[in-house]
C-alpha cells in the first residue's frame, strides 16, 4: 500500500512538466526514504534523477518498496487537471496495475480522483558516483534558461568555460558566433539573483543545446540552478524542489572534433 499526500501539489505538476519532454516512460521508485526516479532520454545521452524525500510529504505511507511504471506524458496530462494550490495524493495498492491521483482543493470543497494505468518498464539504473567537481556555478535559473534559449537560435552546441573571471557560454553557427559571460555577483540583498562560482581549476566543456534547453523546463521549480562541471565528465544541472529534494539532469559532454 502506497499513499503519499503532498500539500504543495503544484510542485508535482512542475516536476512532471520538467520531465515529460526528456523521458517518455519511467519507473517511480517508492521506498521509506522517498519518492524517486532515475531515467535516461531515448538516446541515452541525458539522464534525470529526481528525489522527493518522505519528510516533505504531509503523509507518507509506503509499506514496501514499489516501482510504478508510468508514461510521463499521461501522468502530466492528469496532473494538469489539478489546480496549482490543490493537495495531491498518490495512491497505489501493492498488486494493482493502476495508480490513483487525488486532488483536493485547499478548502476541501472539490475532490477529484484520476486513475491511471501502470506500465511494465525495463529500466536500467546507472551508478552515479559522488564526484568532486572542478567548478560549480550557482546562478539565477531564469538567466540560465534565457542564455540557453538565446544561444540555441545561433548554434547547436554551447561551450561552458569557467575561469576566475566568470562563466562563459559560447556558441557558433552558420550566421556567426556568440559569447555570454556571467561574472560572480554575490547579490547579498537578493540571494536569488546571485551568481556564485566555486572553482578548483578552470574547465571548459561542450554540450548539445537541445538537451540544455530541455533541462530548463525545470526553471519554475527554483530561483537558482547549480551547474557542476569537471573535465571529461557529464555536467550536472540541479534544481532544488522546495525543501524536499531535487531534480538533477546529467548530460554527457561532446568530444572535441
Amino acid at each position: 500500500m502506497l499513499e503519499l499526500r503532498l500539500v504543495q501539489g503544484g510542485l508535482l505538476k512542475k516536476v512532471l512538466e520538467s520531465l515529460k519532454d526528456l523521458v517518455n516512460d519511467a519507473n517511480f521508485d517508492c521506498s521509506a526514504s522517498g519518492f524517486s526516479l532515475q531515467a535516461m532520454d531515448s538516446s541515452h545521452v541525458a539522464l534525470v534523477a529526481l528525489l522527493l524525500r518522505s519528510e516533505g510529504f504531509e503523509h507518507y505511507r509506503c509499506d514496501r518498496n514499489l516501482s510504478l511504471g508510468m508514461n510521463l506524458n499521461n501522468m502530466a496530462k492528469m496532473l494538469k487537471c489539478a489546480a496549482n494550490d490543490d493537495i495531491v495524493t498518490i495512491k497505489a495498492d501493492d498488486a494493482s496495475d493502476s495508480v490513483t491521483f487525488m486532488f483536493e482543493s485547499p478548502n476541501q470543497d472539490k475532490i477529484a480522483d484520476f486513475e491511471m494505468k501502470l506500465m511494465d518498464i525495463d529500466s536500467e539504473h546507472l551508478g552515479i558516483p559522488e564526484a568532486e567537481f572542478q567548478a560549480i556555478v550557482r546562478m539565477p535559473s531564469a538567466e540560465f534558461a534565457r542564455i540557453c534559449k538565446d544561444l540555441s537560435t545561433i548554434g547547436d552546441t554551447v561551450v561552458i568555460s569557467v575561469t576566475k573571471e566568470g562563466v562563459k557560454f559560447s556558441t557558433r553557427g552558420d550566421i556567426g558566433t556568440a559569447n555570454i559571460v556571467c561574472r560572480q555577483n554575490p547579490s547579498i540583498d537578493k540571494p536569488e539573483e546571485a551568481t556564485i562560482i566555486e572553482m578548483e581549476e578552470p574547465v571548459s566543456l561542450t554540450f548539445a543545446l537541445r538537451y540544455m534547453n530541455s533541462f530548463t523546463k525545470a526553471t519554475p521549480l527554483a530561483n537558482q540552478v547549480t551547474i557542476s562541471l569537471s573535465a571529461d565528465l557529464p555536467v550536472v544541472v540541479e534544481y532544488r524542489v522546495a525543501e524536499m529534494g531535487y531534480i538533477r539532469f546529467y548530460l554527457a559532454p561532446k568530444i572535441e572534433e
Binding site: 541525458a46 558516483p129 554527457a252 568530444i255 572534433e257
Partner: peptide, 14 residues
C-alpha cells in the same frame, strides 16, 4: 562522426 558519447561511457549500470 558522432562526437556525442552516451552516458554509459561514464557511468556503469547498477
Amino acid at each position: 562522426a558522432d562526437n556525442q558519447p552516451r552516458l554509459s561511457a561514464f557511468f556503469a549500470p547498477k
